[in-house]
Design a protein around this nucleic acid. Structure first.
Lengths: 211, 211
DNA sequence: TCAAAAATAGCTGAAAACAGCTATAAGTAA
DNA sequence: TTACTTATAGCTGTTTTCAGCTATTTTTGA
């Protein structure tokens, strides 16, 4: 039964990448590549009828966002190991993939050796990253923290209350301030974090762990 | 100079834990434990005057939240490796610590061997987790996805646009809908996700990776 | 101690959000 | 095929947000 082999699938919009990985991995008898897909939907259909042990998943696909796809994969088949295989070097993207259930993150520029090592580690149940990714994760988001530092204590306080669903009047009452004062702080927050409105403000603040 | 040794600090509110780690690590000549603190503020003061290569950080401290402390540490001293040492097994907590700059996450119940291995890996610049933590990370958050599943496709679409700072009228134009329709979807989103207003909506949605 | 930054308070008017309803057509699952 | 869900559209009235101003007091840093 294929369940007992290390069945691998590659999802990438460039056929040449799929081809390369197939040739690379087919040398190893312990792997069995059972599919390659250039579209997310095709893979999802396949996943519903096949047992996939590990999937190498490109994040930039034509039909679906890789982050969402990862979540979908883990919902349909929680035991399938998702290994992100991407060009994106953004820390937030890497952490988002992990949050969505990925077991690791490989950059496409990784060496052949690195790729093989990571796949092996993933198969052993480990969380695995290519070397550059490890560095990126370890490196804290200094730029983002600076934005936060620019906010005054009062602004941070009010930002948290806004995020909590409080209205301007609510906040004014809670902090014994005039509503005009709170409105000013709110305006300054929008300006400082370059947000168009509260929705935008909260999304950015949340993603940057400001609240 | 202490800069060239592997200087280690332990921050934990239980002195016995600090003591245990000191005794454990002092056997290895390559480590130099230069401090143990039961309060976050004390450690921050110390960090400003000393060179710390790695800090074993308990998340539950009396005076400050460990997540915030981690961020502060990486701001003051970006090269200091933060290794979370905690009882919390919640996936969200682990990922939050990583997002805040931690290089790894150890459970307190880990074996001595595991702890030593992880510290070594961390010193080598690796991201490291104790075994149970690896499992927790690999296990996707099924519960959280359920809320998302309750939203219809159209609602998810509109939620993303709201989060992007678009107004009701913007969205209506983009999707060729009446503004009343968009308003209704918006109302349903607020109700389904139990949010008081947009700020509340976006915060919850972002934290739950709905957008 | 002097200048800058932060916090405070105020005003107006337009735009947007929100609550609370009704109602119809289309698709879907029991 | 019937009942339910989803998506659509509409209305009214109130509350809140937001932009664009001015201006005073308090705090802080150089």
């Amino acid at each position: 039964m294929s369940q007992h082999k290390n069945t691998i699938v590659v999802v990438d919009d460039h056929p040449i990448v799929i081809e390369g990985l197939i040739r690379l991995l087919s040398k190893k008898p312990e792997y069995e590549i059972i599919g390659g897909f250039t579209r997310g939907e095709e893979f999802i259909s396949f996943l519903k009828i096949a047992t996939v042990k590990i999937v190498l998943l490109d994040i930039m696909l034509p039909d679906i966002n890789g982050m969402d796809l990862c979540k979908t994969i883990k919902t349909i088949s929680p035991d399938t190991v998702v290994l992100a295989f991407s060009n994106y070097q953004e820390r937030s993207v890497i952490l988002q993939m992990l949050a969505n259930g990925a077991s690791g993150y490989l950059l496409k520029e990784s060496s052949i050796e690195e790729i093989v090592i990571c796949i092996n580690e993933a198969l052993n149940g480990q969380i695995t990253f290519s070397n550059i990714v490890k560095e990126i994760i370890s490196r804290p988001q200094l730029k983002e923290s600076q934005d936060f530092a620019k906010l005054t204590v009062r602004e941070k306080e009010i930002l948290k209350l806004i995020a909590d669903g409080k209205t301007t009047n609510d906040i004014a009452e809670m902090l014994f301030l005039s509503k005009f004062t709170v409105e000013n702080h709110r305006k300054n927050l929008l300006q400082k974090l370059k947000a168009k409105n509260v929705a935008d403000l909260i999304r950015h603040a949340t993603l940057q762990n400001l609240i």
